[in-house]
Amino acid sequence: MHFTNRLRFFLLHSLLFATFLIAGCAHPISGKAQSDSLKEFWTGRISLNIKSEPAQSFSAGFELKGKPERGELTLISPLGNVLGVLRWSPGEAELDSGNQKIQRFDSVDALMAQATGAAVPLTALFAWLQGDNANISGWSADLSRHDEGRILAKRSQPTPEADLRIVLD
């Protein structure tokens, strides 16, 4: 079975429980001691629920480092196993699932869609993590609990609708 299909199967059936464990007050790992400059490293939990038929759900721990132009997103199971590492830089994007051949993509949007089941707007994600309510077509973000390390974003267009939740450690 293809890595992303195995990943989705595992997440849909085994990690759904992890979604219910998302709780607590959280802060970016880079901490308050850092200056007001932009942070480039976050850890926490991420879930994506896609309101398709049948509904799809994705949930994992994560480590995100870098910027929208160049970065790395590591997805981690509740047991601490690395599920995959997504890397991107100008002109290239790849998914490293560990024991399989590295998959290459034309864009970071295609990479995110393959890994999570929906095109998550990476530039907006970085802005939301910084507390900036970036305006992206089809998406709306609720940053009212950003100070607690919680972000909620909803996609209304294109269909199917999707809910993205982030809880920072």
Rank of each mutant, 00 (worst) to 15 (best):
S156W: 06
K65G: 08
W128Y: 13
Q103F: 06
E53N: 08
D36W: 04
D163R: 11
T19P: 00
L48K: 02
H13E: 15
E92Y: 07
S156E: 15
I76K: 02
G61W: 01
L38S: 11
P28S: 10
A141M: 02
A26K: 06
K51N: 08
D96I: 11
R104D: 03
I22T: 03
A60V: 02
D132R: 10
G84A: 15
A33S: 13
I46C: 04
A124D: 07
G31L: 14
I46K: 00
E53G: 00
D96E: 04
A162I: 11
D36A: 12
A162V: 13
I151S: 02
A113G: 05
L164H: 06
L11D: 03
A18L: 10
L111H: 02
L7I: 14
D169S: 09
M112I: 06
S97F: 04
L86Q: 01
S107R: 10
R6V: 09
G66Q: 05
A118T: 07
P160L: 11
R145P: 00
Q100L: 12
R45W: 04
S107K: 09
W42Y: 15
L95K: 02
D106F: 05
S35G: 15
A134C: 03
D109T: 11
L12D: 03
P158Y: 11
G84T: 13
Q34T: 08
S140I: 05
L164N: 05
P78R: 01
E161H: 08
D147T: 09
S14D: 03
I151C: 05
S59G: 07
V85A: 04
L143K: 05
A118E: 01
A26N: 07
A153N: 06
A93W: 01
S14F: 09
R8M: 15
G91N: 15
V108Y: 01
R87A: 09
L83A: 15
P121H: 07
S140V: 09
D132M: 05
S14C: 11
L73A: 08
A113E: 11
D163P: 00
L12T: 12
P78Q: 03
S107Y: 08
N5V: 14
P90K: 08
F126W: 15
Q100P: 00
A23S: 12
L48H: 00
S30I: 03
A23T: 03
A93C: 09
R165S: 14
G80R: 07
G117E: 01
T74F: 02
F17L: 07
G31Q: 10
S156D: 13
W139F: 09
E72P: 00
S137R: 06
A153T: 10
K51L: 14
H27I: 07
P78H: 04
P121W: 10
F10C: 05
A141G: 01
A162Y: 07
P68N: 10
M112K: 01
D132V: 14
M1Y: 09
A124C: 11
L168P: 03
H146V: 08
L15K: 00
I136M: 04
R150Y: 06
L64V: 10
Q130G: 08
Q130P: 02
P54F: 09
A23R: 02
E53Y: 04
N49Y: 05
G131F: 08
S144N: 12
Q100W: 04
S35L: 14
